[in-house]
């Protein structure tokens, strides 16, 4: 329980760092930290494979992509505007309300107690079995999505060279 609170506090702190820091590099590093800590939460929730994927895909690929673009464009720190726009204020109020509502909803829910986990829960075998039976169609569609994303990314990035 203490471990959970420790991890949760660190996660929230680094998530705030992502959102609040002016320099995008620090935001990216905060994002790595957040993703790693969420991976730790996944391990605590008996989802070892998902935790591994989280580290490899998110921290290993996505954040590197972010850092690469930041380095490539030499993005400077953002100048904080003194006033937040009207829509930003309304948005923040909405977010606050939303967070409270979600938290209350999660707490009010009748706690039914954790059930006994079958052996190998969260293992690669069980996930693969689910993936290739229930999620077969989605899995195939995912490959299509990735193909479209690759083609789209190449097309968008090539336009830069031509101009």
């Amino acid at each position: 329980m203490i471990a959970f609170y420790f991890i949760a506090l660190l996660t929230l702190a680094s998530a705030l760092l992502v959102v609040l820091h002016r320099n995008p590099i620090y935001s990216a590093l905060g994002l790595v930290n957040t993703l790693f800590l969420i991976a730790v939460s996944f391990v605590m929730l008996d989802a070892e494979l998902i935790a591994m994927l989280q580290v490899i895909v998110y921290a290993g690929a996505i954040v590197i992509l972010f850092l690469f673009v930041i380095m490539l464009l030499n993005v400077e720190s953002e100048v904080r505007s003194a006033r937040i726009s009207k829509i930003g204020t309304a948005g923040l109020a909405f977010v606050l309300l939303f967070a409270v509502e979600l938290a209350v909803f999660a707490l009010v829910r009748d706690p039914s107690g954790a059930q006994e986990l079958p052996a190998g829960f969260g293992s690669t075998e069980l996930l693969a079995e689910t993936l290739f039976s229930k999620g077969m169609l989605s899995f195939e569609l995912t490959s299509l999505l990735l193909l479209v994303a690759v083609v789209g990314a190449v097309v968008m990035a090539r336009r830069k060279v031509e101009s």
């Binding site: 996660t11 929230l12 998530a15 957040t34 606050l96 939303f98 979600l102 938290a103 999660a106």
Partner: peptide, 11 residues
């Protein structure tokens, strides 16, 4: 965990 996730989502 649900509360933690809600807070991260709000952030």
């Amino acid at each position: 965990y649900l509360v933690l996730a809600a807070l991260i989502f709000a952030i």
